[in-house]
Each structure stands twice: as structure tokens, then as C-alpha cells.
């Protein structure tokens, strides 16, 4: 926010806007209509990226939590908080879009399916994680406790992902991240999905970077870190965390 270097600062927003535009065009105009589900299937191009980038955000919480426990630098703690907030928002978005998709295709908004329940539990766990963050007044005590919870909370992510593989559910098994080699998806649809994922990821990095800058400005740690040093590691830590 305050003093990011000009060229790098403009590059990311430009890339994010471009990717979002491309994803929008691909998803709504270029990608063919699904033979079985009809237009409702186009919700996949936002539902799936939202869920994946939520996983990515929670992975970033894990990485930042571990980094904090090693380095004891509040920069990582702010990063973990921003990533957790984003992950909560995206998980809620994925659930909401999933309901919108489920109503016309399955026939119900909600059902007691393992994937739906585990995703909701994941959301609640990270909401509780944000609560843990506010339990102590000393920022380092709060950071240490929430880092411990941030590590434990991530155990829910594989449970959510594998819930459709382990158990017989109404939710379909993964198409792209599945165990088989060749994903059963039309190539054009796959490209639209990929564009959606890239757009969501770039937007997520943008949002997290902004939020971290805001948290740094609000935090009671004046002049501990030089202003420009804060932004750079955030960009490298967040995408690197989940890959």
C-alpha cells in the first residue's frame, strides 16, 4: 500500500484484471455448454477455483504459521491472518456457489453429504482460528497460539479433498485433481477452468497483499521492519506455499 515499488506494484493488478477478463470470456462465451447439465455447469468455472484457492490460502496459513514458529517475526503472523480471512471468504463462496449449482442439477440446495459437511466444518474451524487470534493482547503470544492452531487446522483440508474419494457421496469425485491420469473434461472447458484458477489466484495474492499492508499499518510495531521489506516476501510466500 504505502510505498511499493512502482513497476512490480502495477504488474500484479494488471495481470489479475487481464486474467479475470480472460476467464470471464472463456467461461461465459467460449466454453461449450455441458451436454448433461446445461448452462448451470458454467458455475464450475467459479466454484472450483474458489475451492482450490481456498485450499491454497489455508496452505499459506500453514506455511506462515510454521515460518512464524521458526523466525518469530510478526510479518508471517500478519500473512497467516490475511490468508485465513481470504480462505474463509473463499470457502463460504465455494459453499454458496455449490448450493446454487446443486439446486438446478441435484435438485436440492443442501444435503447431508460427506463433502458438504466436511467443507462446512473446515469453514467453522478457521472461523474459530480467527477467534484464537484475538484471545491474547500481546501480539507475540497471540501469534504463537494461533500458529499452533493454524498447523492443526490444516489437517481438515485433506479430509475435505479426499471425502469424495474415500466415501460414496452425492458430490462427484474430482475431475482434474483425481487419481486417474487423463481428466475426463473437454479441453476448452479445461482451459476456461485453468483461466479461472489463475484469475482467482492472482486476485487472492492481491487481496492478501493489501490486507497484510493494512494489518502492518494498524499493528503496534512501529519501524521494526523497513516499509518496503514487508510487501516482497508476502508475494513469494503465498503462492509458493500451496504448490
Amino acid at each position: 500500500m504505502p510505498r511499493t515499488p512502482a513497476p512490480g506494484g502495477a504488474l500484479l493488478p494488471t495481470a489479475a484484471v487481464t486474467a479475470s477478463g480472460a476467464a470471464l470470456v472463456l467461461a461465459l462465451l467460449v466454453a461449450p455448454e455441458d451436454a448433461v447439465q446445461g448452462p448451470a455447469q458454467r458455475l464450475m468455472y467459479v466454484h472450483v477455483p474458489a475451492a482450490w484457492v481456498a485450499y491454497l490460502a489455508f496452505a499459506a496459513v500453514l506455511v506462515c504459521s510454521v515460518a512464524y514458529l521458526v523466525r518469530r517475526d510478526l510479518r508471517f503472523d500478519r500473512c497467516a491472518q490475511a490468508a485465513a480471512e481470504l480462505g474463509i471468504g473463499l470457502t463460504a463462496l465455494a459453499i454458496g456457489l455449490g448450493m446454487l449449482w446443486g439446486r438446478p442439477v441435484w435438485g436440492v440446495w443442501w444435503t447431508w453429504d460427506a463433502r458438504l459437511v466436511t467443507t462446512t466444518v473446515l469453514l467453522l474451524v478457521y472461523v474459530a482460528y480467527l477467534g484464537v487470534r484475538r484471545m491474547a493482547d500481546d501480539p507475540h503470544v497471540a501469534a504463537r497460539r494461533s500458529a499452533a492452531v493454524g498447523v492443526v487446522a490444516f489437517l481438515n483440508v485433506p479430509v475435505v479433498h479426499f471425502s469424495v474419494v474415500w466415501w460414496r457421496t452425492l458430490h462427484q469425485p474430482p475431475t482434474v485433481l483425481g487419481p486417474e491420469g487423463s481428466p475426463p473434461i473437454d479441453p476448452v472447458m479445461a482451459w476456461a477452468l485453468a483461466a479461472g484458477v489463475v484469475a482467482f489466484t492472482l486476485l487472492a495474492v492481491l487481496v492478501v497483499r493489501r490486507r497484510v499492508a493494512g494489518l502492518r499499518a494498524a499493528g503496534a510495531e512501529p519501524a521494526a521492519v523497513p516499509p518496503a521489506a514487508g510487501a516482497a516476501p508476502v508475494i513469494t510466500v503465498v503462492p509458493g506455499g500451496g504448490r
Partner: peptide, 10 residues
């Protein structure tokens, strides 16, 4: 109260 939100999912 927060404890309940952590214990039940765990």
C-alpha cells in the same frame, strides 16, 4: 466459548 468451536470439529 471459543473452545467449544475448536473441540467439536476436532
Amino acid at each position: 466459548g471459543l473452545l467449544a468451536a475448536l473441540v467439536l470439529p476436532a
